[in-house]
Amino acid sequence: MPGLVDATTGWVVHALNLGVERLDLRGELSRQLGRPVAVENDVKAAAIGARELVGDATEVMAYLNVGTGLAAAVVDSSGEVMRGIGGAAGEIGHLPVGGDVPCGCGQVGCLETLASGSALARLWPQPDGQLRDPFAAAAAGDEIAARAVETLCEGIGLAIQLLALAAGAEHVVVGGGLTDLGDPLVEGIAAQLRARAARSQLIAGLSLADRFEVLRSDVPVAAVGAALLPRTTTPLVAEGA
C-alpha cells in the first residue's frame, strides 16, 4: 500500500496519489477476509523482495522506486527495514531540492518533480497523452525530450547520492515503471553519477556509478516482499478467525 504505513497497527495515512488520508487497511481487510493480514508500504515491501532476490546480506541496501512518484526504502545489514517517524523513512521524493513546481504533498520543488513518471510527462508532454520513449526521441533530435531525460537522470542520480550519504546505502537497486526505458536510462544515470564524481573527490570516493543496478518492472520484487511479510511483521488475526 502506498503512503505512510504503520506495519504494527496496519493503519495507512497520507497515501497522496490515491487520495487516501487515513485508513485502517489491516483491520478492515482482516474483518472482511476472516484471515490474518499483514500490511506494508509498497516500496518497503519491494525493498524486502529486492534484498531477497539480488541483495547482499552484508550490505545496507536501498530500493529506489521510480514510477508515477519517487520513493525509497532502506534495509540494514540485519535485514530490518528502516521506518523512521510514522514510517516516513525513505520518502525522499518529498525532499525539496529547488525549483518552483508544486508537489502533491503541498510543498514546492520536491525531488519527485524532477525524477518520476509524472515529472517526465510534465517535462515532455505528449498530445495524445501516451508517453513514448523519450530517449529514442532525444536521439532523433527532439530537444525537449533530451532536456527531459537529462533532468530525469540527474534527479535519479541525486536520489542515489542522497541514499548513500544520508542513509548509508552501499547498494542501490532502482525499480519501478520507468526502468522499462532500459539501457539508455541505466547509461544516463551512470553518466550523471560519473559527472558528479568528476566534480568532487568526496563523491568520487563513493564509487556510486558502481553501486547501483536497475531492475525491470517485470521482476516481481514487491510480490516477493509481500510474500515474506509474515516473517517481518506480526499479522493481525480477525476476531473469530
Rank of each mutant, 00 (worst) to 15 (best):
A7I: 12
V13T: 14
V13H: 09
A15S: 12
V20E: 07
R26L: 07
R26F: 00
R26S: 05
E28N: 09
L29W: 12
Q32D: 12
R35P: 09
V37L: 06
E40T: 07
D42I: 02
D42P: 00
A45L: 03
A47Y: 01
I48L: 15
G49E: 00
A50S: 02
R51K: 14
E52M: 12
E52F: 15
G55K: 06
G55Q: 03
D56F: 04
A57F: 11
E59A: 15
A62M: 02
N65Y: 06
N65E: 00
N65G: 05
G69S: 06
A72E: 05
S78G: 13
V81E: 07
M82P: 06
A89T: 09
A89V: 02
G90L: 07
G93W: 02
P96R: 09
V97D: 05
G99W: 12
D100E: 13
V101H: 13
P102Q: 13
C103M: 09
G104E: 15
C105L: 11
Q107N: 15
V108N: 13
V108W: 13
C110M: 03
T113R: 14
S116G: 04
L120F: 01
R122Q: 12
W124S: 03
Q126W: 12
D133N: 13
D133Y: 02
A137Y: 02
D142H: 00
E143W: 02
A146F: 01
T151R: 15
L152H: 07
I156D: 01
G157T: 09
G157Y: 11
A159T: 07
L162K: 07
A166E: 10
E170I: 03
G176W: 00
G176H: 03
L181D: 05
L181G: 00
D183P: 15
P184E: 02
L185D: 06
A190S: 13
R194K: 13
A195G: 01
A198K: 08
R199E: 14
S207T: 10
A209K: 08
A209P: 03
A209M: 02
R211S: 12
F212L: 12
F212P: 08
R216D: 08
R216N: 06
S217G: 07
D218C: 09
V221I: 03
L229V: 08
L229F: 08
L229S: 10
L236C: 09
E239G: 13
